Amino acid sequence: MAPLLQVSNLNAWYGESHVLHGVDMTVGEGETITILGRNGVGKTTTLRTIVGIIRERKGEIRFGGRDMLGVPLHKTAHAGIGFVPEERGIFSTLTVEENLTLPPVVAEGGMSLAEIYELFPNLKERRSSPGTKLSGGEQQMLAIARILRTGVRLLILDEPTEGLAPVIVQRIGEVLKKLKERGMTVLLVEQNFRFASRIADRFYLMDHGRMVADFPVRELPDRMTMLHKVLGV
């Protein structure tokens, strides 16, 4: 499987606080990768550093063979990377459909509105509703859906199931499986270990700003003792 994203010896700082310590990871084309770890170990920081929100960084980030370390934040999406932050970041005063059509198309292969509404029937029903009227689950669906229209090659999700009802979590899992069938590459941070175990191809385990393990889903049963120790699950 060809690597789409390669991160090598990535370090990052918040001011004088050194938070990432030589992170190494690879995401192959078409893979779904989940980063596991306790709160505060650097998972979200890793995502934010990759997309360029955190600028105080050193190391190597290559996407599709291109060096991304010097790419300005506003050009990250045009390079083919879509990011859904934990706070979702939808435009609350715009309708669902306005949120979906606002982001620019950056490459061929993005979904049409019809395809998005087929994938997210809830959004079709609420297409004329402003963001303020959406439930947390609907907002999360909208945050994911608006990126799918743009044609990006990598979808990065930060805690996509945080605070959502089980039925919505199940629906998001179904959506991610369908995206995988379409060849979408997904990198996510997720606290819901059961959810992650159903959708991921591989896992990275993070602790104290470093990746301490990397293993495929088939090794999950043999890794449970270690995961219990590191995650407390």
Rank of each mutant, 00 (worst) to 15 (best):
I116Y: 02
G232F: 02
T132K: 12
A114V: 07
I90W: 05
P104T: 05
V189E: 02
S8I: 13
R210T: 11
V23C: 01
A200K: 07
E60Q: 11
G64W: 03
K58P: 00
R198Q: 14
D158T: 13
L176Q: 00
T101D: 13
Q170N: 13
L20S: 04
R223D: 09
R126I: 01
A143S: 11
V175Q: 06
V212Q: 01
V230H: 02
D222V: 12
T161R: 09
I53K: 08
Q191G: 04
M224N: 04
L179I: 08
G22Y: 04
R126V: 02
T185R: 07
S197L: 14
G15I: 07
G40P: 08
I61S: 04
K58Y: 09
T95D: 01
I35R: 09
M184H: 08
R88H: 06
I81C: 09
A165C: 05
G137C: 08
I35A: 03
P221K: 14
L220W: 04
S8K: 13
N11T: 10
G28H: 09
G173P: 01
I54Y: 12
G37K: 07
T44Q: 09
K180L: 07
F193L: 15
V189Y: 02
L100K: 01
K75E: 15
T46S: 05
E29N: 06
K177C: 03
G173V: 15
T161L: 05
G232A: 02
Q139T: 06
D24S: 04
V7F: 02
K229Y: 10
L10A: 11
E60K: 11
T76I: 11
E138Y: 02
V23N: 02
I156G: 06
V19E: 07
K229I: 14
R55A: 04
S8T: 14
D222T: 12
S128M: 14
T76N: 07
R55C: 01
A200H: 02
F83N: 15
G232T: 07
